[in-house]
Simulated scan of single mutants.
Amino acid sequence: MKKVLFSILFIGNYVASQAQEKDSTILKNTDLHEVIIRGVNNSADVSSEYTSRIPLKNLENPQVTHSVNSKLILNRNYFVQYNMLSNVTGVSPSWAGVSPYYTVRGFRTRSNFRNGILGYVASDIDPVNIAQLDVVKGPSGTLFGSSMTVFGGVINRVTVKPQDDNFTSITLAGGNNNFQRATFDVNTKLDTESKGLMRITGAYTNKESFQDQGVYQNLFLAPSLLIRYPIS
Rank of each mutant, 00 (worst) to 15 (best):
V128A: 06
P139R: 06
P139G: 06
L118Y: 06
Y120M: 08
M84H: 03
V80S: 10
G145E: 04
Y82M: 01
G106H: 00
S86R: 11
V104W: 10
Q63Y: 11
V154W: 01
P62S: 15
L74A: 14
N115P: 07
V104L: 14
S99E: 11
I73M: 14
T149H: 05
T159L: 15
S92P: 03
V104T: 11
N75F: 09
V91W: 01
N156V: 13
A96C: 05
V154G: 03
V160M: 15
P127H: 13
G106W: 03
D124Y: 01
I155T: 03
G97W: 01
S67R: 14
A122Y: 11
I73L: 09
H66P: 06
S70E: 10
S99F: 01
T159F: 06
R105K: 07
V150A: 04
R76Q: 15
I117N: 10
G145A: 09
Y101P: 01
Y101R: 05
V121S: 01
N75A: 14
V64S: 15
R76T: 13
N87K: 08
S70G: 06
S123G: 12
D126M: 13
D134F: 07
Y101T: 00
T65W: 10
Q63E: 12
P139A: 06
M84F: 07
T109I: 12
V154I: 10
S147V: 11
T159W: 01
K161M: 14
L72D: 15
G97V: 02
V135F: 05
L143T: 01
D124C: 04
R76K: 15
N112S: 09
V150L: 05
D126R: 10
R105P: 01
K137R: 13
V68F: 10
S140E: 08
L133V: 07
A96F: 04
S70K: 12
F79V: 04
R157Y: 15
D126L: 15
T103A: 00
G116S: 02
P62V: 06
V158A: 14
N69P: 09
N83H: 06
S140Y: 05
G153A: 06
S94M: 08
T89H: 10
I130S: 11
G141P: 05
F107K: 06
Q132I: 04
K71G: 12
Y101W: 00
F151L: 14
M84N: 07
M84W: 03
M148R: 15
H66F: 09
I130G: 02
V135K: 04
Q132T: 13
T159N: 07
L143M: 07
S140A: 07
S111T: 13
K71Y: 12
T103C: 05
R110E: 12
V91K: 00
P100M: 13
I117H: 04
V154Y: 02
Q81G: 08
S92C: 00
A131W: 11
V88I: 02
Q132L: 04
M148V: 07
G97C: 02
S147F: 00
V104G: 00
M148S: 15
P93Q: 02
W95M: 13
N69T: 13
R114C: 04
F79T: 04
V121R: 14
N87P: 00
W95C: 13
V68H: 05
S146P: 02
V154Q: 01
V154L: 05
G138K: 01
G119I: 10
V80Q: 08
V136C: 09
P127G: 11
Y101L: 07
V158T: 14
D126K: 10
